[in-house]
Amino acid sequence: MTETLLSQALVEEATKKSGLIWVRGTGPERTLWHVWHEGAALVVGDGPGEQPLPGLIDGGTAEVVVRSKDKGGRLVSWTASVSELEPGSEPWESAVAELKGKRLNAVDAEHVPERWRRECRVLRLTPGRSTTDHPETALSAPPLPTSATTRQPAPAALPRLLLSRKKKRR
């Protein structure tokens, strides 16, 4: 009993403090931003400009891995039951109020709830009673294909230019 309470407390505290969680449903594992609210992780996505939620289906389960905020490594893993919140319902309104406050860089910040109602899914990932064991091997995998690109390396002369500006200011 005590071990179950400790693992639930670990899941809650670690997930609250972590800005990202790794989630795997029936599709590929994804890193998702989330909000911890009323005993569950809330995520929004599958709409234009929002994070994809592949393999997360209403009534299904998902494996959630929470990273350590200071080291970035795997801290705790837990199995979640996935439930999609009905747009406009009281739980949906409560979830969206929490998510909206944490949504960074929204183009239409004032109209986010209306857009989410029309175009997105809001999911509740509720943890089970215990955590899952860490695997013995690394779970590293190559990144998923994306159209995003990395900017070019900084020119070799850039550090000298920046240092010369500092010297001129003095």
Score class of each variant (00 low, 15 high):
Asp58Ser: 09
Ala41Arg: 05
Ala157Lys: 09
Arg24Asn: 08
Pro54Ile: 08
Arg169Glu: 15
Pro143Asp: 12
Ala80Asp: 11
Gly55Val: 06
Val96Lys: 11
Lys100Val: 12
Trp36Pro: 02
Ser147Gln: 12
Pro48Met: 03
Gly27Gln: 00
Val82Cys: 06
Val11Met: 14
Leu6His: 14
Glu38Arg: 11
Pro153Leu: 09
Pro142Cys: 07
Gly72Phe: 02
Pro87Gly: 06
Ser164Asn: 13
Pro135Ala: 11
Trp78Arg: 07
Ala40Lys: 02
Leu158Ala: 11
Thr4Asp: 10
Leu5Asp: 12
Lys168Ile: 02
Glu90Asn: 09
Ala40Met: 08
Pro145Gly: 02
Gly101Cys: 00
Gly73Glu: 04
Ala14Arg: 13
Gly55Gln: 06
Lys102Glu: 08
Val23Gln: 06
Ser81His: 09
His37Asn: 11
Leu75Gly: 02
His34Cys: 01
Leu99Arg: 11
Val64Cys: 07
Ser81Ala: 14
Pro28Gln: 09
Pro142Asn: 06
Leu10Val: 09
Gly19Cys: 05
Lys102Arg: 15
Thr2Arg: 15
Ala138Leu: 13
Met1Pro: 14
Glu29Pro: 01
Gly47Asp: 04
Glu90Leu: 09
Val35Pro: 04
Val11Asn: 01
Lys16Met: 05
Arg129Gly: 13
Leu104Thr: 05
Thr149Ala: 12
Arg129His: 01
His134Tyr: 03
His34Lys: 15
Leu123Lys: 07
Ala141Thr: 12
Arg115Phe: 14
Glu3Arg: 14
Gly25Cys: 00
Trp78Phe: 14
Ala14Tyr: 10
Pro143Met: 10
Glu3Val: 09
Asp58Gly: 01
Leu104Ala: 12
Val96Trp: 12
Pro135Ser: 12
Gly88Val: 03
Gln51Ser: 09
Arg129Tyr: 00
Cys120Trp: 11
Lys100Cys: 13
Gly19Ile: 03
Thr4Ser: 08
Met1Tyr: 01
Arg151Met: 11
Met1Phe: 05
Val23Gly: 01
Leu75Gln: 14
